[in-house]
């Protein structure tokens, strides 16, 4: 069974932010929320790297575990989705997330955060597929059409890979062998193998 993952090849990411822009546009993501973002580490140093990140759709996802109202749920391809109708904006997922993915529109006063928003792996939400309600709350549902997340499919250097975890892992490994170097799968240990100590 396919286990959907994200993998960003830090040697290839050129910080063009096309993934972030395409995501914003595809889903009409509200102001103040960035579902997909590019982080540059060691900026200006010889080992500078840029990595695109978002919700990683973790194994044994901490956000799903801590949600007090069962808003978050996981699918059998690993994608973590949420139901904005039951979300109470408590922020638990926000504190539990290892990648800073859940965000809140902050549209209301006095700390009420509004409904949580995060990357859906372009898989919409619990509403009927391709319905207007689904688009308004979660954005486009590309998975239902057999497509992959727009951020990865739009990536001009193919740094950002999405889809079947084994296959993107294989694509990445072949790449590393071919060019002779690679800094590894950033975030995979935290996201997908919480019980491993890391290599």
């Amino acid at each position: 069974m396919a286990r959907a993952k994200f993998l960003c090849d830090a040697e290839r990411c050129i910080e063009c932010n096309a993934c972030a822009t395409a995501c914003k546009n595809e889903h009409e993501v509200p102001w103040g929320i960035v579902r997909r973002r590019v982080v540059t580490i060691n900026d200006g140093e010889p080992d500078e790297k840029s990595i695109a990140t978002s919700c990683m759709h973790c194994t044994d996802a901490p956000c799903v575990s801590v949600c007090p109202v069962s808003t978050l749920y996981q699918t059998d391809i690993g994608v973590v989705l949420h139901d904005k109708d039951t979300c109470i904006g408590c922020g638990y997922c926000f504190y539990a997330c290892p990648f800073g993915a859940p965000q809140f529109p902050k549209a209301t006063m006095f700390g009420s955060r509004g409904k949580m928003d995060k990357c859906t792996y372009c898989a919409g939400g619990p509403e009927e597929d391709h319905s207007e309600a689904e688009y308004r709350k979660y954005g486009a549902n590309r998975i239902a059409e057999g497509k992959l997340p727009i951020c990865a499919e739009v990536c001009s250097t193919r740094a950002l890979l999405a889809g079947d975890g084994e296959m993107i892992g294989e694509i990445y490994r072949e790449r590393v062998i071919h060019r002779g170097y690679g800094s590894g799968a950033w975030g995979w240990n935290t996201a997908y193998y919480p019980e491993e100590d890391g290599a």
Binding site: G182, G184, A185, Y193
Partner: peptide, 9 residues
């Protein structure tokens, strides 16, 4: 293979 390409969290 996957274990070999992972980072320390």
């Amino acid at each position: 293979d996957e274990a070999a390409m992972m980072h320390q969290p």
